[in-house]
C-alpha cells in the first residue's frame, strides 16, 4: 500500500473534495492500484535527465500593457450561481 486512508483524507482536503466513506474506500483502492502501475518508472535511471514540462521553446510570453475593452459586467456575471449589486456572492467568510 502506497497511500493510507489518512493520505486520502489529506489529499481530498487539499483538492477541496468532500468524499463519502464509500468514495474514500474506492479512492484508496484504485489510487494504490494506479500508483503500483507507476512503479515501472523507477526502472529508468533519470539522474542525468532534465525534466520536460513543455515541448515548445517558448518562454515568458509578454504583451504590451495596454488598456483594452474587457467583457461587460453582465456577461461576466451571467453564469454566476449567485450575485448581488454587480458582485459574486458567497457565504459569510468572517
Amino acid at each position: 500500500m502506497k497511500i493510507t486512508m489518512k493520505d486520502v483524507e489529506h489529499v481530498a482536503l487539499l483538492a477541496r473534495l468532500e468524499l463519502t466513506d464509500e468514495e474514500k474506500q474506492e479512492q484508496l483502492e484504485k489510487l494504490n492500484q494506479i500508483l503500483d502501475a507507476m512503479e515501472v518508472l523507477n526502472q529508468v535511471d533519470t539522474s542525468h535527465v532534465e525534466p520536460l514540462a513543455h515541448v515548445l521553446p517558448i518562454n515568458n510570453v509578454f504583451r504590451e500593457d495596454e488598456l483594452k475593452e474587457s467583457l461587460p459586467r453582465e456577461k461576466v456575471l451571467q453564469n454566476a450561481p449567485d450575485h448581488e449589486e454587480g458582485m459574486f456572492k458567497v457565504p459569510k467568510i468572517v
Binding site: E18, V76, A80, P81, D82, F88, V90, P91, I93
Partner: peptide, 17 residues
Amino acid sequence: GVRYGYRTEWAEDVLSL
C-alpha cells in the same frame, strides 16, 4: 461554485461551499 458552474445548496461556509 463562485463565478460559474454548479453550486451546492448545502454550504455553511466557504470551505464547505
